[in-house]
Simulated assay, not measured.
Amino acid sequence: MTKDEHEISELDLFDRKILEALSDDGRMSITDLAARVGLSKTPCQLRFKRLIVDGYIEGFKAVINPSKLNLEHIAFAEVKLSNTQEDALRAFNAAVKKIKEVEECHMIAGRFDYLLKIRTRDIRRYRHVLGERISNLPFVASTSTNVAMETVKENWSGSSYAS
């Protein structure tokens, strides 16, 4: 058993219930959380703090409505790099994190190297972000874009709210 597998197995039913409850409503009080998971307040608070310290809970944030901010255009850019050695990957990773319109960036095993989820207000802004920012990232050889026609399910974090 790996260290990560061992840590996960150390979570009991109450820990898992706490994580599930907070993923539904991160603003609930400790009193409400304790009632929901079937613990008294003090043990629930101790578990909550331990889950934070142990890294199971990384933080809390507001879920922003992107349509209220006129940020409904979503595109997925496939990015192929000219170099996939570790130094090139590190340079790309560091640079892509600085582009606020990029909500997600995943290294992919397949015909391209990275898949980026990009949120902007419209196609014109997307073209600007693609042409001026993404295409100029370190080691980008080519890109290909897929535009979302409809979002069926999404957990949006609000990371690109100022586009």
Rank of each mutant, 00 (worst) to 15 (best):
L81S: 01
G38P: 07
H106G: 00
A34S: 13
A34K: 05
E103S: 04
K100W: 00
K68Y: 15
H106A: 05
F92D: 01
S40K: 15
S29M: 05
I99P: 06
I99N: 07
E72K: 12
K100H: 10
R111T: 07
R119C: 01
M28V: 10
N93F: 05
G110E: 06
K49T: 14
I118Y: 02
K100Q: 11
T31A: 13
H73L: 02
A95D: 08
L71K: 13
L116M: 00
G38M: 08
Q45G: 05
C44V: 02
P43G: 09
K80R: 13
L89S: 02
F112P: 00
A35Y: 08
D32I: 07
K100P: 07
A35I: 01
E104H: 11
E58A: 11
T42D: 08
D113P: 00
D32K: 15
V53M: 09
K117G: 00
N83H: 13
K97C: 04
R27N: 12
A88V: 10
N70K: 15
S82D: 09
R121W: 03
H73Q: 04
V53G: 10
L115Y: 01
E78F: 13
Y114C: 01
Y56M: 06
L33H: 04
S82Q: 09
S82Y: 08
V37K: 03
A109R: 12
S40G: 14
F48I: 05
S29K: 12
K98R: 15
E78D: 12
L116C: 07
C44Y: 10
D87H: 11
S82E: 12
H73T: 03
R121I: 03
K98Y: 00
L115G: 04
R119P: 00
E86V: 12
I74W: 01
I74P: 00
A88L: 08
L89D: 06
G110I: 03
V96C: 09
K97I: 03
D54G: 04
Q85L: 14
F112E: 02
Q85T: 13
E103D: 06
R90E: 11
T120C: 06
N65G: 02
N93D: 15
N83M: 08
E101W: 05
E86R: 10
T42M: 11
S67P: 01
P43C: 05
R90H: 12
E103H: 05
F60W: 11
A77G: 02
A94G: 03
L33N: 02
I57K: 10
N83R: 13
E58P: 05
Y56I: 04
T42H: 11
F60N: 04
E104F: 07
I57T: 07
A91K: 14
M107D: 00
T84L: 01
Q45P: 06
N65E: 13
N65P: 02
H73I: 01
H73F: 14
K80T: 10
A62H: 12
L89V: 14
L69T: 10
A94T: 12
A77K: 03
A91S: 15
I64T: 10
A34T: 06
V96Q: 15
E104Q: 13
L71A: 03
A94D: 11
A77M: 08
D113H: 07
D87K: 15
E58W: 12
H73R: 10
D113L: 00
L81C: 00
K98T: 11
G55E: 08
R121D: 02
E103C: 04
T42G: 12
I99Y: 10
V96G: 02
I64K: 08
